[in-house]
């Protein structure tokens, strides 16, 4: 897999003696589904905001498709890496859903017919094709979250960063949102999700990056991360319920992380 985003010894801070990112080096590859976890103030959102130039390193370099983010502006980078905010209301400001979704492509100077097609495709992808003329601010939180995703999809980014995409959603809206993200991943988008929800990490992520005090504490698959109690304690999270159950009843090789995997293992299926 080719490298899309590369962090090379990245330092970032408002005050010299208190860096928010403290020498982070890592590579994110095309087509990965990555979860970034960590406690409050660990640097996870700051790390993610370096991916599309919302923040630029104080020292070190971030490269997107081989180009240093310091040589590009956010508008240029947003065509490659799109950032979806935790609170959709921070990015929704138009009076119709269609106008909201068309905003990015318009700013990129696309011709009207290309914009129209991009908007139609993005609305279809999130299941809002028939809602284009509605007022976004009066929709449910789940729908507003989908509008935010459609707005970035319309720009056809290679990489999508989602900051806590399920916070405040009920279970059905959460499932719909994550199925949409799974579909975008299947279509080839690289996905980066910042989350506190370990059930979501277990179900969807292929790779987990754990941030702690501005440093990369652990980087591996979910099984690797959940097997390290000290790492989980530093990230202020608990392993998902199925993993804790597996440990308590001695189910091993490996300990299943999800309900489906646990059921299979206990019933001896797939052996």
């Amino acid at each position: 897999m080719s490298v899309v985003i590369e962090f090379d010894e990245v330092w970032y801070g408002y005050e010299k003696e208190k860096p928010v990112l403290n020498g982070v080096s890592l590579q994110l590859k095309q087509g990965e589904f990555v979860a970034i976890i960590g406690g409050n103030g660990s640097g996870k959102t700051t790390l993610a905001k370096h991916c599309n130039g919302l923040y630029k390193p104080t020292q070190g370099a971030v490269k997107v498709n081989g180009l240093d983010t310091k040589t590009m502006n956010v508008a240029q980078l947003s065509r490659i890496v799109a950032y979806c905010y935790q609170n959709p209301d921070h990015q929704i400001f138009h009076s119709t859903i269609k106008a909201e979704v068309a905003f990015g492509p318009k700013n990129m100077g696309w011709p009207p017919e290309k914009i129209e097609q991009a908007v139609a495709e993005a609305l279809a992808a999130v299941g809002l094709s028939d809602k284009g003329e509605e007022e976004p601010h009066f929709s449910s939180k789940g729908t507003r979250q989908k509008i935010a995703v459609a707005s970035i999809l319309a720009m056809k980014p290679q990489v999508i960063v989602l900051d806590e995409p399920t916070t405040g959603l009920d279970y059905r809206a959460m499932q719909e949102m994550m199925e949409l993200v799974r579909q975008l991943h299947a279509e080839g988008h690289t996905i980066i999700v910042i989350t506190h929800d370990m059930r979501l990490v277990a179900e969807y992520a292929q790779r987990v990056i754990v941030m702690h005090k501005g440093k990369l504490l652990c980087d591996g698959d979910p099984q690797h991360v959940f097997s390290q109690p000290q790492v989980l304690a530093a990230a202020q999270v608990e392993a998902p319920a199925m993993y804790r159950f597996g440990k308590a009843v001695d189910v091993h090789n490996p300990i299943p992380l999800t309900l489906t995997a646990m059921r299979k293992q206990l019933l001896g299926e797939g052996k």
Partner: peptide, 30 residues
Amino acid sequence: DVIRLYHMLCQEGVMPASSTGVPLTVEELA
């Protein structure tokens, strides 16, 4: 997940229904 797993395992005959009712935590199910 703990509660759903309990119901699945009871249905599959892997374990009997609990006489004290549905287990509500990882510890109770274990």
